[in-house]
């Protein structure tokens, strides 16, 4: 097992932010931890990369206790933290070379790897730029390159694409997929459900410090939500009627603001959904987003800071 958490708990003072979670990460898989802000995702990630000691339970990485062998664990980890913490005093390539030195990689080898990694994240044109002048997307890519300098067996990525424009996001996901193909195990958190569905073999959905569900994202959605979702905003004044019909027909739905998210089937007690008087109606594939909504009654991504 690459990561194994048992009844893992973390308290900050009296506040319990991670409440007895159990999960494991298998070699070579991409494991996503999803959930709204404040769910305990970042704290869980920080415990994995030995930056935050847990309060109770047990946590091993590479079958080593994080409390006893942090050095050995960290030597084999690559970390992309939630906040950019590049070394602003150093230029782009120096960031990688200096970081390599922390892993005891020799100077010439560090320079070789740094050049390769800058190519990998497509920052070769920025090699000698001053780090603070990079755009947000470039900084994120440089941090990804930095996390790979020690050829890690496990990558721990906390929101690797948050704040990036769509192209930069796509580039990062593409890089992560190719890393996974080359055998790197990945644990990540993200707000982007479509991306998580595509990249992750398994996901754990967290809310309020607990894992409420673990499994393959496509299967989970298929089993628990169905394949389709109808987003419907009823015509003004018809809410009450719609509520009644939906409950009578026993159709699963969630109401968030003005919008109804209706899950299985395209008929409500004999009526076609399209015939319901509406201002807006959208048929689309069901997603992890819908699953989370169904489980918690809350939206997953729109709690962004």
């Amino acid at each position: 097992m690459i990561v194994h958490a048992q009844n893992l708990t973390k308290k900050f003072g009296e506040t319990e932010v991670v409440r007895g979670i159990n999960f494991h990460v298998k070699p070579g898989e991409c494991f996503g931890i999803l959930g709204p802000n404040g769910a305990g995702k970042t704290t869980t990630m920080r415990m994995i990369y030995c930056a935050s000691p847990f309060t109770s339970g047990a946590l091993t990485v590479f079958d080593l206790d994080v409390r006893r062998h942090p050095r050995q664990i960290k030597a084999r980890l690559g970390v992309v933290p939630q906040d950019n913490n590049l070394d602003d005093d150093l230029r782009v390539i120096e960031n990688l070379i200096t970081y390599a030195r922390y892993f005891g990689i020799s100077g010439s080898e560090a320079r070789r790897r740094a050049a390769l990694l800058l190519d990998f994240v497509q920052l070769q044109d920025k090699t000698f730029e001053r780090t603070p002048t990079l755009s947000g997307g470039m900084k994120r890519r440089l941090i990804l390159a930095r996390s790979l300098i020690n050829h890690p067996q496990l990558l721990v990525l906390d929101e690797p694409t948050t704040g990036l424009d769509p192209q930069a996001r796509r580039l990062v996901w593409q890089k992560l997929r190719s890393l996974k193909e080359s055998g790197t195990t990945i644990v990540l958190t993200t707000h982007y459900m479509e991306d998580a569905e595509q990249v992750c073999d398994r996901v754990a959905i967290m809310d309020l410090g607990r894992i409420i569900l673990t499994g393959n994202p496509v299967q989970l959605v298929g089993e628990l939500v169905g394949t389709e979702c109808h987003e419907l905003e009823p015509a003004p004044g018809t809410d009450g009627m719609l509520d009644q019909r939906l409950s009578q027909a026993g159709v699963a739905f969630h109401k968030l603001g003005e919008t109804y998210y209706i899950f299985p089937g395209s008929e409500i007690g004999g009526y076609k959904i399209d015939d319901v008087p509406h201002r807006r109606l959208l048929h689309r594939r069901a997603t992890l987003e819908d699953l989370f909504l169904k489980l918690t009654g809350k939206e997953l991504t729109k709690t962004d800071e």
């Binding site: 990369y49 050095r71 005891g104």
Partner: peptide, 14 residues
């Protein structure tokens, strides 16, 4: 300000 220490302690350094 630069969170350099934080970056370093994600490596084998304590």
């Amino acid at each position: 300000i630069q969170k350099t220490f934080e970056a370093i302690i994600a490596t084998p350094l304590s």
